[in-house]
Simulated assay, not measured.
Amino acid sequence: MSIFNERIDRLKTSSVKWELTKDIFGEMDLWPMWVADMDFKPPQAVIDAIKKRVDHGVFGYTFVPPSVSEAISAWLLKRHQWDIQSPWLLYCSGVVQAISTAINAFTNEGDKVLLQSPVYTPFFDMIEKNNRVVVNSPLVLDENRYQIDFAQFEKTLQQGCKLFLLCSPHNPGGRVWTKDELLKIGELCLEYNCLILADEIHSDIVYKQYHHIPIASLSDQLSEKVITLIAPSKTFNLAGLQASAVIIKNKAMRTQFQEQLKRQGVFTLNTFGIIGMEAAYREGENWLDELIDYLQDNKEYTIQYLTEHFPQITCIDSEGTYLLWLDCRGLGLSDKDLRNLLIQKGKLALEPGPKFGHGGEGFVRINIACPMDDLIEGLNRFKNALT
């Protein structure tokens, strides 16, 4: 029996996913399949390492020891064939904080920042809240798979974009970008002197027929113009530990980023974020391999269920992440009506597509990182809402 079948009650743990549905969706008692965290315990090695640190009993100021960067470097080399050096690493409490820091470090107010919608909502938020200008080169949905319109992408770069936010693998569409696609992105960004901020937080959750490639690993020239963001939060369900890593090979850019962190008063990570991050990257590989197999089964079950009950709904077949992007336009419902049916009739909380920008209209995002029984419960509620 899989360890991922265990159902864990997350109520009364200050869980955003389970306890803030009233604040987010306006209703209590919704089945939550929205925000991107998992309902699984992390690797036992992570729990044990944190317990050991708790037992020590003293929680004074801490720094990130060299052993953490060594663990991350070894992980990236083994899982993604990317050979990085420890000095390239900096740390933030989360990827969203790192996105904001990079925007402030490498652009000025009023500068244009490029993204590709539909895409992770904080991309928009961090650009706009820092008084930069969003420039969008929308992805193209072609035969149930998102593609990049490179002619349009180049036109947007010609507008003078200073920074491009790359979501790799893509959230919510689940694309794992190919080497040729990444090389083309890199070639154009280099040509138009646009830095690349690569959010690769989902890079470890990729289904077995696909392979994530860190864009910074593709060439020496490209590695000098890329800021890469990773974290154990999605991979090992450690979002609450508030720990992420920033990889910048270019020393001047790394200094620039670090100075911006200092201006924000950021100097280290919390004690348990440090402990959890190192333990996950050192000892979490077998757990992750089992997780990916489990998610594959959940994905296939979801697609089969929707095909049987709702042939007018198309599930974008995710190549990575534990998020599925459902094209509900065939239902003939407005986004408001779809949302109301899911919440009021189905008692189900999903992410509405319009949150992800242009191209998200008529879609919803569902999180399948839960025990199979919980997935079935959610899908039955989905069916009840729309039947």
Results as ranks from 00 to 15, higher is better:
Gln258Thr: 13
Asp317Val: 04
Thr307Ser: 12
Asp317Glu: 07
Phe310Leu: 07
Gln312His: 04
Lys251Ser: 10
Thr255Asp: 03
Arg254Tyr: 08
Phe310Val: 01
Asn250Leu: 06
Glu285Gln: 14
Gly240Arg: 08
Thr307Lys: 15
Gln312Gly: 01
Gln258Trp: 06
Met277Ile: 02
Ala279Ser: 08
Gln264Tyr: 04
Glu300Met: 09
Val266Ile: 15
Asn286Asp: 12
Asn286Arg: 08
Glu259Leu: 14
Asp297Pro: 00
Lys299Ser: 06
Glu290Cys: 14
Gly284Phe: 05
Leu291Ser: 03
Ala243Arg: 08
Ile248Thr: 04
Leu295Pro: 07
Gly276Leu: 08
Tyr305Cys: 03
Glu290Asn: 15
Phe257Trp: 07
Ile275Gly: 13
Ala280Asp: 08
Trp287Val: 02
Glu300Arg: 12
Thr268Pro: 07
Phe310Met: 02
Ala243Val: 03
Tyr301Asp: 06
Ile248Lys: 01
Ile303Glu: 05
Leu291Asp: 01
Gln258Leu: 10
Arg263Val: 13
Gln304Cys: 05
Asn286Ile: 10
Leu295Glu: 11
Glu278Trp: 03
Glu300Thr: 06
Gln264Ile: 05
Phe310Thr: 06
Glu278Phe: 03
Gly240Ser: 10
Met253Asn: 12
Tyr305Ile: 00
Lys299Gln: 14
Gly273Ser: 15
Leu238Gln: 15
Ala280Glu: 01
Ile303Asp: 00
Lys299Pro: 00
Leu295His: 08
Gly276Tyr: 01
Ile247Asp: 04
Lys251Gly: 04
Thr307Ala: 14
Phe272Arg: 02
Phe267Cys: 13
Leu288Thr: 13
Tyr281Ala: 09
Arg282Tyr: 11
Leu269Gln: 00
Thr255Ser: 10
Tyr294Lys: 05
Asn237Arg: 10
Ile316Leu: 12
Lys251Val: 14
Leu295Ile: 13
Leu288Asp: 07
Asn270Asp: 12
Leu288Pro: 08
Met277Leu: 06
Thr268Leu: 09
Gln296Asn: 11
Leu269Ile: 07
Ser244Ile: 11
Tyr294Leu: 02
Leu238Lys: 10
Ile274Phe: 12
Thr314Phe: 05
Gly273Leu: 12
Gln242Ala: 02
Asp293Ile: 15
Leu238Thr: 05
Tyr305Glu: 00
Gln260Trp: 02
Ala239Trp: 01
Met277Lys: 06
Thr302Ala: 11
Gln258Ala: 11
Gln260His: 02
Leu295Cys: 07
Gly284Ala: 13
His309Thr: 03
Lys299Trp: 00
Gln312Tyr: 02
Gly276Ser: 05
Glu290Arg: 15
Ile275Lys: 10
Gln312Asn: 05
Val266Asn: 07
Asn270Cys: 06
Phe267Val: 13
Glu283Gly: 11
Glu283Tyr: 14
Val266Leu: 04
Asp293Asn: 15
Pro311Thr: 04
Trp287Phe: 13
Leu269Arg: 01
Arg263Gly: 01
Tyr281Pro: 01
Leu238Trp: 09
Glu290Gly: 14
Leu306Asn: 08
Asp297Leu: 06
Tyr281Lys: 09
Thr302Arg: 01
Leu241Pro: 00
Lys251Met: 11
Thr302Gly: 02
Ile275Gln: 12
Asn237Ala: 13
Ala279Lys: 03
Asn250Cys: 04
Leu295Tyr: 05
Tyr294Phe: 14
Asn237Lys: 05
Cys315Tyr: 04
Ile316Ala: 02
Gly276Phe: 01
Ile274Trp: 07
Leu295Phe: 10
Asp293Ala: 14
